[in-house]
Amino acid sequence: MASSETHESNRRDFLYIATGAFAVVGAASAAWPLIHQMNPDASVQALASIEIDMSAIPVGQSITVKWQGRPVFIRHRTPEEIKISQETPLEDLKDPVARNAGLGGDVDASDANRVIQPEWLIVVGVCTHLGCIPVKNQGDYNGWFCPCHGSHYDLAGRIRFGPAPENLLVPKYEFIGDDAVRIG
């Protein structure tokens, strides 16, 4: 008698647990589309690459283009600027990692790892601190200076002083001709 009651209650518990589990799985599956809809949609993702003709940028000047809704700085560096950047000792850098989307995660932040052709520096113009846009040709290192919270970037877009934790991100890009580049 007693054992058959236990048996019965076990079967009942199993039924309740199975039903509850189905309810949880159902609710969770229904929630996912409601969350995923906030991710970038197909039309946004389709705009993932842009092509830029850089032939009109004089040496020593830079332009800002919009890519994925963010500014990208393209700087035509002078030989002197390249030299300063290349000779900066790695131990002076606040962030020793290249932060180059085209390279692996562990490479060092030497100037060679921040560019493809030394005269062209291409970085995402978003301060790695809290997302402001740094101002060009300012700050202690003549690269960029973020007015929001005082981060100083050098001529290779590397953080040298201030609260920003990382170097300016180098996006994935490739040269598609002498002075044209495809970002993304």
Binding site: L15, A18, T19, F22, A23, V25, G26, S29
Partner: peptide, 9 residues
């Protein structure tokens, strides 16, 4: 899914 769930319920 709903058929099985309905059966369980």
């Amino acid at each position: 899914f709903l058929l099985i769930f309905a059966g369980l319920l």
